[in-house]
Amino acid sequence: MDLFMAGLGFGLIAASIMALAAVGFTLQLGVADIFNFSFGAVMTASALAGYEANAAGLNVWLCLPVGAAFGAALSVCLNRAILTPFMHRGAGLFGMVIVTLGLAIVIQNLILAIWGPVYFTYQVDNSSTVRWAGMILTTSQIALAACSAAIMVVLHLLLTKTKLGKAMRATAANADLARTSGIRTSRVNDTVWALSGALCGLGGVAFVINTVSFQAATGTDYLILVVAAAVLGGAGQPYGAMIGALIVGVASEVSATVISPDYKDVVALVILIGVLLVRPRGLMASVDLVQAGGEETIA
């Protein structure tokens, strides 16, 4: 039982961090309709921006906004310069998977070529340990979870209470209909990439504050868990992604402590496969991801 509670504690922390990235990923999948494989590489790049700021003397908590800004800027640039042009040139859904995968490999290996195969380590202040109901957490982990929860609340308000949020949800549900109703979908698109890029950057930095060190492939490795959370929640569903992150985060951490750490990722991957095969719409999806295939152009 103690083991279970300890795992649950780690799982809740992992979930709150994962939720940041998963919501960002699902926004891209839903609104921009791109399965963005380079998301993980952008996470690594943002974490690296945070690392450089940290190494220059900035407090590690202030690296979060640095990573967010960097992720937002990089995502908007990548979308404008590469992804949208490829989409307009007729790369189909699968073509975009190949394009973003290629992009991920380029970004990741540029980092590797320039900085070398090293582990980057954040200077995190020593934090005290808090024990509560069998969970053993550090204060910085609790602070991370609190940050994440606050961001989720802000995001919730943005999506439900503002015109922009309404426009985003409308574009995700049906871009053509949204355009006919007078929503400037291209501007909405830019906003979505900035917002999701910021979440991506936050997720990257938060992940590294929790694990302390990272290397060039960390983001891409982590991405699969993020994808599992996003797909489980239903593509394009921010709330679904939050719930998905909760399930994937808790399931993988609890299984790591209860079964074996070796199979931590496998549990998340099996959840992902199960969802894809049994219920590809996810828990909360309204966007139709199931369609008769074969009518797309390849690449």
Binding site: F35, G92, L93, F94, M96, V97, V227, V231, I273, L276, L277, P280, L289, V290, Q291, A292, G293, E296
Partner: peptide, 12 residues
């Protein structure tokens, strides 16, 4: 080889 959207099929 089921009728999943092609990007999700690739991911599976």
């Amino acid at each position: 080889l089921r009728r999943l959207r092609s990007d999700l099929q690739a991911i599976t």
